[in-house]
Computed example of a mutant assay.
Amino acid sequence: MLFKDRTAAGQVLAKKLADYANRPNILVLALPRGGVPVGFEVAKALNAPLDVLVVRKLGVPDNEELAMGAIASGGVRILNQSIVNQFQIPDEVIARVAVQQERELKRRENMYRGDRPFPDLKGQTVILVDDGLATGATMWAAVMSVKQQQPKEVVIAVPVAAPETCEEMQSKVEKIICANTPTPFYSVGLWYEKFPQTTDDEVRELLNKANNHHQPLLFGK
């Protein structure tokens, strides 16, 4: 399955989540930036509110696409110990990368949310959406961040994933939906005809569109 773009991928994914449509206490949390166009389509189809959970990959120095770990809102930090050991990455290097990414995480949170509070997740069914899963490091950090708030249920939903990552994540949440698990996988972007970088402006525009319809539900505490 080759997706035309993230919008089309979100529409396909939404059909696989149809059982969650029009339910109370459902929240779609997209991982910016690429997960937001996907999550927007999911939220729209399910008639559910949309927000973002900012997660940052901790890339291996000189090979930043390879994740040695990830951080997420709420002070979550995870490490891929096998990658750390394989590349013999010292603690001080990990700490330096983490500080850099923490700075970017806070910048994005401020840009996307401003002074709006993070939604209360307690008792909610949270659907975590991204444009794909490769190593799963950022999604696992997102799951840990969400579980700190005691949701009723955590669902992972992605258009495409490495088969082994999708299988591994099944034990971490109540439900996972990977619409496409191709073998060989290689990378997320290979399974999209168009895979441009999503911009900060696009993220804010989609959040504003979604929140115009669901603001009382999302942010009422």
Rank of each mutant, 00 (worst) to 15 (best):
F3S: 00
A9G: 03
G10C: 07
Q11M: 15
V12E: 13
V12S: 06
K16C: 01
A18N: 12
N22E: 15
L27Q: 06
A30M: 07
V36F: 06
V38G: 02
V42G: 01
A45Y: 07
A45E: 14
N47V: 10
A48N: 04
P49W: 00
L50H: 01
L50D: 04
D51M: 04
D51K: 00
L53C: 02
V54Q: 02
R56E: 09
K57E: 04
G59R: 07
V60L: 14
D62F: 15
E64F: 13
E64R: 15
E65G: 10
L66K: 09
L66C: 07
M68A: 07
I71Q: 06
S73W: 03
S73K: 03
R77S: 04
L79D: 02
S82G: 00
F87K: 12
P90Q: 08
R96H: 00
Q100E: 12
Q101L: 14
E102K: 09
E102W: 05
K106A: 14
R107F: 13
M111R: 10
Y112T: 00
R113H: 09
G114L: 09
P117K: 14
K122A: 13
K122D: 11
T125G: 07
I127S: 05
D130R: 06
L133Q: 01
A134I: 02
T138M: 00
W140Q: 08
A142C: 11
A142P: 02
V146S: 04
Q150K: 13
K152R: 15
V154W: 02
I156A: 01
I156V: 12
A157F: 02
C166K: 05
K175C: 03
K175L: 14
A179C: 11
N180A: 12
F185Q: 12
Y186R: 15
G189I: 01
L190W: 05
Y192A: 04
K194D: 13
K194M: 09
F195E: 11
Q197H: 02
T198G: 09
E202R: 07
V203L: 04
R204Q: 13
L206V: 01
K209N: 11
K209D: 11
A210N: 13
N211C: 03
L217G: 01
